[in-house]
């Protein structure tokens, strides 16, 4: 199992999926922070004075962690940030779903007339979460020392 999950090709594919999704999701929001601020406000979860800051910060965080994940820089740190943000997004979606808020989630499209399927987004988030966990736990960090097998063992012990 461990061998399959730490397979180089699989790792690259997962990083492309998660990183690509995050970059794709961030672009519209970076271009139009006003609409994203409205989308955040619609969740009715956060005090209003934090909304603008988050509307600026979150899209860039998505973009940068997504990019890092794809190019393989700060892989572990990026994937941990992505995991935390995915968990927070999912909580936000869940509470909106439970409270029956009819909102556009602000996940990909910011057009208020597109009422997105919250449930589908939640499922999607859970899959992304799973992928990112695999990246966090099974990706190899490069080590110049020792031969391959030993360095692999070292890494697995560290986790």
């Amino acid at each position: 199992m461990r061998h399959i999950l730490s397979n180089r090709i699989l790792q690259i594919i997962l990083r492309l999926i998660v990183g690509g999704t995050f970059i794709y999701a961030s672009l519209g929001k970076i271009a139009d922070p006003v609409s994203f601020a409205k989308a955040i406000n619609n969740y009715q979860m956060l005090p209003e004075f934090t909304v603008n800051f988050l509307a600026i910060f979150i899209p860039y965080l998505e973009f940068i962690t997504g990019t890092f994940l794809i190019i393989g820089l700060f892989k572990k740190g990026s994937s941990l940030i992505i995991i935390v943000s995915l968990i927070l997004f999912t909580i936000g979606l869940l509470q909106a779903y439970i409270r029956g808020l009819s909102i556009n989630c602000g996940c990909f499209s910011l057009d208020p007339s597109t009422k997105s399927e919250i449930l589908i987004r939640i499922i999607q988030d859970i899959f992304l979460l799973l992928f990112t966990f695999i990246i966090l736990l099974y990706s190899k960090t490069k080590k110049i020392v020792l031969n391959n097998k030993e360095s692999e063992n070292v890494n697995q012990q560290r986790i």
Binding site: A31, N52, Y60, G77
Partner: peptide
């Protein structure tokens, strides 16, 4: 993580100030 967050904060603030559709920090 700390490095990424600091880096993102700087880029976000810069990006927002250069964005013609940028918004104020506090609503």
């Amino acid at each position: 993580i700390l490095l990424i967050l600091i880096f993102t904060l700087i880029i976000a603030l810069l990006g927002n100030s250069f964005n013609s559709k940028g918004i104020k920090l506090s609503s």
